[in-house]
């Protein structure tokens, strides 16, 4: 039967097949180059961009694939970061404890917040995810035991015995690279899997999916938890990079920026979220060299991206590819 041999439309449309490997090769070269020639500052900058990209990737799973616009995703980054910070504050520095605890905490938070938020649709969903993130933000602010709004300094990075040393900036950068790559591959597989197809179907036409017999909310909740957990992982890495955690990690500006990265990079392609995150971090870095008021430029830029930049960077690449 010929049916089994063709790649169906929506898989072909992703076109991540050819671009994504290039993105990662370029990234690996950049890390290598920064380490060899540019110095620690740039290695750290790239590391931060990779961590942010991980969070954006998590969000793209929700927004791009499942069509669920979460405006509170920084909350999960914050939970991951706080888990590391709080455990460290209590003298528990082993990564073997810190990391699983952090991931389970962000997964659990995502399960609760997701279960509540997914009772609603559309604008309600946007506002409710935002509201829950604010709730966690204020909760973190009132944790006077852990620094309150001043935040919490982490004196030691997660300790993995002798296996990897996060204190070494080069090791840390490559660890982030490997994690980003693994998560990307896993989510790309997920996107093309049966599960991913259900998410895309529900984004297309939820009513139809229900009439086919899918308990749509259950699938979305699983996606929400996966996404929250990945964001939590980004938080774990971020806390280790900055050796600091503060409520600001969860502020709604951070959530809005994550959303901006996803759209800037091109929704739904996954590698686009990575590109968007890098574009954002590098743009911020560049603009803030010229002026402390870099948001004066970034704000209007974001408006323009939304109004005229259909498909974001990934869309641009796809169009360029077609011209060739």
């Amino acid at each position: 039967m010929r049916a089994a041999t063709r790649a169906p439309v929506s898989v072909r449309k992703l076109e991540g097949g050819s671009v994504a490997p290039l993105v990662f090769v370029a990234l690996a070269l950049a890390v290598l180059g920064a380490d060899l020639w540019a110095g620690p500052y740039y290695v750290k900058l790239l590391t931060r961009a990779m961590i942010v990209a991980l969070a954006a990737l998590a969000l793209d799973l929700l927004v791009g694939l499942a069509g669920l616009v979460s405006l509170g995703h920084a909350a999960f980054v914050g939970i991951g970061a706080y888990a590391v910070g709080i455990l460290a504050e209590h003298g528990i520095t082993s990564g073997w404890i810190q990391w699983p605890v952090a991931l389970v905490a962000s997964a659990a938070a995502a399960a609760v917040i997701g279960a509540l938020s997914l009772r609603t649709r559309g604008v309600h969903f946007i506002m409710i995810t935002l509201a829950f993130a604010q709730m966690l933000y204020f909760a973190a602010n009132s944790l006077s035991r852990y620094g309150g709004d001043d935040g919490l300094t982490i004196w030691n990075r997660s300790d993995f015995g002798g296996i990897v040393s996060l204190a070494d900036r080069r090791t840390f950068a490559w660890l982030c690279f490997v994690l980003l790559l693994s998560v990307y591959v896993a989510l790309a597989r997920l996107s093309a899997s049966r599960f991913g197809r259900v998410l895309r179907g529900a984004k297309d036409n939820e009513r139809r999916m229900a009439a086919l017999g899918f308990a749509v909310t259950r699938f979305r909740l699983v996606a929400f938890v996966i996404s929250g957990t990945v964001a939590g992982l980004a938080g774990v890495l971020l806390a280790n990079l900055t050796e600091f955690v503060a409520p600001a990690y969860m502020s709604w500006h951070r959530s809005g920026e994550l959303l901006a990265m996803v759209v800037l990079g091109g929704m739904g392609s996954l590698y686009g979220a990575i590109l968007g995150a890098f574009a954002f971090v590098l743009l911020e870095e560049l603009l803030s060299r010229f002026t402390t008021h870099w948001a004066l430029l970034f704000g209007p830029f974001l408006v323009l991206v939304v109004l005229v930049g259909r498909g974001g960077i990934a869309g641009l690449l796809a169009r360029l590819g077609r011209i060739r």
Partner: peptide, 27 residues
Amino acid sequence: FLYDRNHLDQVLATFGVILFVDEAVRA
């Protein structure tokens, strides 16, 4: 320009407006 756009676009564009105006006031 956002009347007919989806909610995500509306959120992001007006978020951009917030960034700009807040910063302008600060400046």
